[in-house]
Amino acid sequence: MTAAELLIAVAVPAEAEAVRAGLAPGAPVRVEPVGVGPAAAAAGTARLLVLAEAAGRAYRGVISAGIGGGFPDRAAIGTLVLASRSVAADLGAESPDGFRTLDELGFGQVARPADPELLRRLRTALPGATVGTVLTLSTVTGSAATLGALTTRYPDAAAEGMEGYGVAVAAHQAGLPFAELRAISNPVGPRDRDAWRIADALAALTAAATALS
């Protein structure tokens, strides 16, 4: 009997190519780009999960993987971050008393924890990875002010990306284990494209892919 596949959802084809390059031949893994941002990621992942289930080949779990920004002193460029939880950091409302999350407004949850067993296996396979909160943002952080606000609100934040929470919601609604992996391409904070090392992050993603099967 063929083993159920693990779905690895990435944002763009370059990330998919990086992950595929590191997978062992014949690994029961499917890697698919689902789009940039939480909405595209949620919709794209949900569609893949529904199609697989309808075809009688439901996935055994879902990993959101890709490059991302690392919070200073938590995750350096070229390193890996595993999410203990994926948080929709800008989902909420502004108020005279400051930002209020969706939870505080009573409309839902902004945090989705990683599946404990899937996270445990990834930590064992990737012992050098930092484990912490990974923030999902629709707008990449580009200023010291935003960095300060995020670190105040989420002092355990290790990385930021644009898709994790969306993928997590799709996996949760399908009843599947979820985890998130980020390879760090740049520091979170004032936007400086000269400091970005996308090739290094993609190489780290390829090296980590051996643990994703």
Rank of each mutant, 00 (worst) to 15 (best):
D97F: 12
I8G: 07
G148N: 05
L105S: 10
A171H: 06
S138R: 14
P38V: 02
D200H: 13
L176E: 03
Q173Y: 15
R197C: 07
R85P: 01
R197A: 10
G44Q: 02
E17F: 09
Q173L: 15
G132S: 06
L48C: 13
R100S: 08
A46G: 13
P187V: 02
D156A: 14
A14H: 10
A201F: 00
A203S: 15
L91I: 05
A39L: 15
I67K: 01
G98Q: 03
V12Q: 14
L51R: 14
G61M: 10
E15D: 12
E163V: 11
L49Y: 02
L23F: 07
P155M: 07
T101R: 03
A21C: 12
A42D: 08
P96N: 04
G78M: 09
I8Q: 01
R47E: 15
A83C: 11
I77H: 00
L137V: 04
G44E: 00
P155I: 03
A75Y: 05
P25G: 01
S213L: 09
L181K: 07
V140L: 12
T151S: 14
R47L: 15
G98P: 02
A4F: 10
A46P: 09
E163M: 10
P155K: 04
R74D: 07
V140Q: 06
A111L: 03
S64I: 04
A65D: 01
F71C: 01
P96T: 01
A174S: 14
A195T: 04
V169Y: 06
A9D: 05
G189Q: 07
L122C: 00
A111I: 08
G69K: 06
V110S: 14
L176M: 11
P116V: 06
G161N: 15
T45C: 11
G108M: 10
V140I: 13
S143I: 09
D73L: 13
E160Q: 11
A199G: 12
A27Q: 00
S143E: 02
A158L: 05
F178V: 11
T124M: 13
W196Y: 07
V140D: 03
I184C: 08
D200F: 06
Y165M: 04
T210F: 13
L118E: 03
R191H: 07
A157V: 08
L176H: 08
V10Y: 08
G166M: 05
T136L: 03
V167R: 02
G61N: 12
G61S: 08
H172V: 13
P190W: 04
L119A: 01
G56Y: 11
A144Q: 12
W196R: 06
A55K: 04
T133I: 06
P190N: 02
V110E: 11
V167F: 00
A159N: 09
L147G: 00
L6I: 12
A93K: 10
L49F: 03
A144C: 08
G35R: 05
L49H: 05
G56A: 13
V31R: 07
V188F: 05
V29M: 03
T152S: 15
R191G: 02
V62I: 08
P96C: 06
G78Q: 06
F71Q: 02
L48Y: 11
L181R: 04
M162S: 12
A211Q: 01
A76S: 12
I8P: 00
A58Y: 00
T136M: 05
P25R: 12
T206I: 09
